[in-house]
Design a protein around this nucleic acid. Structure first.
Lengths: 114, 114
DNA sequence: TGCTCATATGAGCGTGTATTCACATGAGCC
DNA sequence: GGCTCATGTGAATACACGCTCATATGAGCA
């Protein structure tokens, strides 16, 4: 048991709040439904809820719930016009993470094993 | 309802397998315990289970379970020496995502709101 | 006003997942 | 061999999360 190493590593760990914030952000990206929405918005630019639901193969209710989460975390932005709501990706860190990961996953697919 | 836009977006969506793989990877990063482990390994280089548990403030069992997950997904690698197991970060995409996000979160902290 | 459509939201439910506890494996040491 | 220590694993529990269903809000339109 290397006590020196342990305490120096402990001291270097990011604060709890930062860690939990990170986990929350990654959690947003840990759902296929939300990922499809983001991929659609990345390609489509700006879309309404119905079109997003149709394009991503999800119910409008599920999409609305998902968009609410992304909205609360500032991953997407809304523009309201009449009774329509047009969503687009915000220029957030989340977008960048998603974009980067998507690029990688389409070129090289790592898999499972022990 | 913009049918053309919808179908063109649908066609551009990454295949289901890619999306699910992405979600799985992000899911690995969506837990504060695992993030602390990765942060510790990023700083400490190579550490045994006990030291990781001590440095991250988690039970050894929880750490072992978490490391198993990370190992199965090739995020960490093990070196066994006698009864000890020394873990280190693998050069995976996951590591890069984590590293990038960590850098950002320590410089600018985005938050919640409607 | 009354109706429909687009979206939003709340409750309830089923599922996945992290943690703990108890135990197993296996190396080092006497 | 018998003991201890470091790690691994399985089962059980508790919690979080996403989905659906029902309903609400609010714009457009007759």
């Amino acid at each position: 048991m290397d006590a020196d190493r342990v305490s120096s590593v402990m001291a270097s760990l990011p604060p709890q709040a930062a860690i939990e914030g990170l986990a929350e952000v990654f959690g947003l990206l840990a759902d296929p439904g939300r990922l499809r929405l983001m991929a659609a918005l990345l390609e489509g630019g700006e879309m309404c809820v119905r079109d997003l639901a149709a394009a991503c193969g999800q119910s409008e209710s599920a999409v609305s719930h998902a968009l609410r989460l992304l909205r609360l975390n500032r991953v997407v932005k809304v523009r309201r016009s009449g009774r329509m709501a047009y969503y687009r990706l915000a220029d957030s860190h989340v977008r960048m993470l998603f974009d980067l990961a998507l690029t990688h996953v389409t070129h090289d697919d790592g898999g499972h094993s022990e």
